[in-house]
């Protein structure tokens, strides 16, 4: 399989321009004589939480007749997604990432047209017995761990998911609030699109890295300082940059997290701006 990538915009936003897909389709056609077999877009990137313009990419894919797969690992399940509106042919998701289900579990959704091909059942018949094997779901072979508890946890998450996606805007507001608060600390800077359009946010925090050099726990000090304040989730060892996801936290909890960071900054004599 040969993969051609659509470049991102680079530091500090790292965004994807949908027009890049059209350019790459034409480049592939020029070089190989045919269009790509499929276009893939990661709806929300795992690093900076940028929400790509899936509808624009879907439109371009329709124009060129290239099947479009949208990876919604960090979007469906927490924010409203309508495959039809986005013009996707395939939509995949991780049950254990944004669907409140256990792993290993995923979702693959497709259109009626593709359904016939992708989820086609076996059609073989023995030449001697004449017995037909027509019920085997070939596409689902090899996934036995998902049958049972994981699929039940996914099904159990549906009502909660239906409810929580209605509050996506509030969740994003909370993330923006946190970014504003953390950026009061000298050297803190939210990377990716600003203001953030997602609850996954990445920060640079060089002053914490500098403070880490003076502590016994070195880069792990941030993890321990947060843990002392009953905040977990930051990857141990991270201090000069880190990412966090505010999804599911109430505004009060977000304020608590923001205050914790500010308290840690002050403890290590990192300047903090007064609140506006």
């Amino acid at each position: 399989m040969k993969v051609v990538e659509v470049p991102h915009s680079g530091y500090p936003e790292f965004t994807i321009d949908p027009e890049g897909y059209a350019e790459k389709f034409e480049e592939v056609e020029r070089n190989t004589g045919s269009l790509p077999a499929m276009a893939l877009l990661t709806h929300v990137d795992y690093r900076y939480g940028n929400v790509a313009d899936a509808a624009a990419v879907g439109k371009i894919c329709k124009e060129y007749g290239v099947p479009f797969l949208l990876n919604t690992a960090y979007s469906s399940g927490i924010m409203p997604i309508e495959g039809k509106k986005l013009g996707v042919d395939f939509l995949c998701a991780s049950g254990h990432k944004s669907w409140a289900a256990s792993s290993p579990m995923g979702i693959l959704a497709t259109t009626f047209e593709w359904n016939q091909q992708v989820f086609d059942k076996s059609t073989i018949r023995g030449d001697w017995s004449g017995r037909g094997f027509t019920k085997k779901e070939v596409a689902l072979f090899g996934c036995s761990p998902v049958f049972g508890v994981p699929v039940m946890t996914l099904m159990a998450s549906f009502p909660s998911v239906v409810e929580r996606v209605k509050h996506w805007d509030e969740q994003v507001e909370n993330a923006r609030y946190l970014a504003t608060q953390l950026e009061r600390i000298e050297g803190f800077h939210q990377m990716g699109v600003k203001p953030t359009e997602h609850t996954l946010v990445a920060f640079e925090s060089l002053p914490l890295f500098e403070a880490a050099a003076k502590t016994k726990k070195r880069g792990y000090f941030l993890y321990h300082e947060l843990k002392k304040r009953k905040i977990i989730g930051i990857q141990p060892g991270m201090s000069k940059s880190f990412k966090l996801n505010t999804f599911g936290l109430s505004r009060v909890q977000i304020e608590y997290v923001a205050n914790a960071f500010i308290e840690i900054a002050r403890k290590y004599e990192i300047p903090v701006e007064d609140e506006a």
Partner: peptide
């Protein structure tokens, strides 16, 4: 400079330069 995520960063004078 020191390594960042996709870039490098370092303190020079009063500024953090990426």
């Amino acid at each position: 400079f020191t390594k960042g995520t996709d870039h490098f960063l370092g303190r020079f004078g009063d500024e953090i330069v990426r």
